[in-house]
Amino acid sequence: MSKTALAYLVSLILLGGAVVLGVTVGTVSISPAVIWNPSSDEAAANILWNIRMPRVVLAGLVGAALAIAGAAFQGLLKNPLADPYTLGVSSGAAVGAVMTLFFGISIPFLGMYTLPVISMIGALITMLAVMGFARLVDRSMKMETVILTGIIFSSFLGSIMSLMIALTGEELRQIIGWLLGSVSMRGWPYVQMALPFVLVGSFVLWLYRRELNAMLFGEERAQHLGVDVKKSKLAILIGGSVLTGSAVAVSGTIGFVGLVVPHITRLVWGSDHRHVLPLSFINGAALLIVCDLVARTIISPTELPIGVITAFIGAPVFAFIFFRQRRGGL
């Protein structure tokens, strides 16, 4: 078997295992047999299909979206520390989402999709602003400059959110979810809200897999190789923003997934975006399903926000990558 086929096989098995664990483990333990044979235990099947499965699918979609977006941002910026969270893009999307709830915005014809669409716009605007500012500071867009700019924007956008939360009365509990991220108590409508955008966004990024490979060698080099840099950049930014926006709209800001997953994927399977993108998608889904499982079971019956778990794993990985980049290998 080729290394590539093995990569996909291992990743899919991990994802399958994560899904099975995700729907069977919890305060009520359910036998995996119920998945294939719902009639064996009606009550368990009900919990499995109406409570746990939408939660697992949503976690999977959010993880996949953040991971593939992270992989694309890293390629685009040639920056291994970039991800929707460290770039401040998640915060931009969260501000969009909080604003939608705070002002009760509803765009005609969009209906339930108003929330993800405004989040995406928030994400895109933030992404453009961060890149624009970083370029102003340092033409070569050094790794640290971009991340520092992301932190500045995150902090600023976070304060706007805090202000809106402070001004809200009873909506407070719902909004606070966007700060730490959660996929609990969402149900199938949220899956429906995110699914089309996650698929479209991922497909757009996958179309630009070869351009991303070229851009890893720098924009100038990519242009030499025949890449329409402006067009590709815009498409990748929009694709990444769509993914981040839809993920944040349904789950809030969950950090580091887009950093950890592509990094490990590259480490194990190589840097070719033709495979890094789809593999990050699959592995991101698996990772977030497992993180959610841990979040809701580790100090059961109390549930931790999922962002706490991802940050617990992600921050050390961030430190590790930073160290490796600066000190050259380990």
Partner: peptide, 19 residues
């Protein structure tokens, strides 16, 4: 120039076929 990511020789040369 310096690169932030690892590529194999083959991957790098193959990029020449992009156009």
């Amino acid at each position: 120039h310096a690169h932030a990511f690892s590529h194999t020789v083959r991957e790098t040369v193959s990029l020449g076929r992009y156009p």
